Amino acid sequence: MRSHFTAPADTMGCEQSKHKENDPKNSRFTTLVYLMLSSQTKDEITDAAVTKLKAAVGGTLSIDAIVSAEESTVSAAINKVGFWRRKAGYIKQTAQRLLHDFDSDVPKTVKELCSLPGVGPKMAILALHVAWDINTGIGVDSHVHRITNLLGWHNKPTKSAEETRLSLQSWLPAEFHREINGLLVGFGQVICLPTKPHCDTCKLSARGLCPNARMAFKATDSEGTVHLSPESSPKLNIEIDEGALHSPV
């Protein structure tokens, strides 16, 4: 189903951010900055902010350029993203750390990435996927957390992104860990919206594969709504490896 439509994540997500710079180090840094800006912010706004920040620091988004720039310059360039003041400080501090502690490059482990200001497990994992082509774990954002719970992919509902990540990693084969984020993020941006999801055009709903599809149909028949039958949703049985829930990434 995802192959039949293009979502914002396909054209403006962190996978595309690395192409904004030709130098490998700058490309990796741009990916990390994109991820830091993307929290609580739509891809369209994040993409525009990265482009504006690049222009504001001289046309090249490098660690040296951010270190040399005033924090006010960074703030002004990214002021459309969520929590922009805090993120401007994080970006400045992160550039300093990368310059002094990591040979002016993005580190290659989750632990090192999470030691940077404002970087959590989701950002660290996605940075490794995109910047270094290292498949290590699943990047779980609000879309992945919400949709996997709607589809009943967990032994019991998960309460946080980190709990969702550990649950998914305990049973989803490793070869799918990298692609599941983009797959579900795009699905959540276009079809399975947080409010008023398009269940009438979703093949999972039509085939009875979404246990929560019926809950989304609030409109009347006069609006052309398709109503699913109560018995259309199958039960999914997923076995969780409890030991994996306590294993490091």
Rank of each mutant, 00 (worst) to 15 (best):
L236I: 14
L183M: 15
E175I: 14
E162S: 05
D101P: 09
G58F: 09
A49D: 06
S17K: 07
P230T: 02
F29V: 02
D241E: 13
L245K: 06
N212A: 15
S104D: 13
P173G: 12
L209W: 07
K111G: 03
I66E: 06
L183P: 07
T158F: 13
A131F: 09
E223V: 01
T220W: 04
V190P: 06
T30K: 02
P121M: 07
S38H: 06
S233G: 10
A161C: 11
C192G: 10
G13I: 08
Y90P: 04
N79P: 02
H100R: 12
L184M: 07
T51D: 15
K159D: 06
E15Y: 07
V67F: 10
K18P: 04
V226R: 11
K87W: 03
D10Q: 01
V185E: 05
Y34L: 00
I180M: 15
T6D: 03
L116D: 03
K18V: 09
P121K: 05
S170P: 08
R165I: 05
S115K: 04
A216T: 15
I180H: 14
T30R: 04
T41I: 02
L193V: 03
N22T: 14
T41E: 01
A216M: 15
V140S: 07
K235H: 14
T6P: 04
G243D: 15
A131S: 08
L209Q: 04
P194M: 11
M36C: 01
A7F: 01
D141W: 04
R86F: 00
M123F: 03
R146Q: 12
L128S: 06
L168R: 11
K42N: 10
V144F: 02
V226E: 05
F102G: 06
L35D: 02
A76W: 03
M123A: 03
S75T: 13
Y90T: 08
L98G: 05
K80H: 09
P248T: 06
R146W: 09
T73C: 11
L236A: 11
F5G: 01
L99H: 08
V81W: 01
T158D: 13
F217A: 15
P107K: 01
E162V: 04
M1R: 05
R207E: 04
D105W: 08
F102N: 06
V74Q: 03
T164V: 12
I134C: 05
L184F: 03
D10V: 06
L151A: 04
W84H: 10
V57R: 08
T148E: 08
N149G: 13
N79T: 08
A131H: 01
N155H: 12
H246G: 11
A213L: 10
I45Q: 09
C210K: 11
I180D: 12
I63L: 10
L151R: 04
C14T: 05
V190C: 03
G243W: 10
I238N: 13
A56Q: 13
A49E: 02
R214P: 11
K196D: 10
P8D: 01
G224E: 10
L99I: 00
M12S: 09
F217T: 14
F29S: 00
L183T: 13
K156H: 15
A216C: 15
D241T: 11
M1E: 03
P107V: 02
R165T: 06
A216R: 14
D64V: 12
R97N: 12
A95R: 03
R178M: 13
I138N: 01
H4W: 00
C202V: 04
S247H: 13
I78H: 03
R97F: 10
H129S: 09
A7N: 02
D43L: 02
A244M: 14
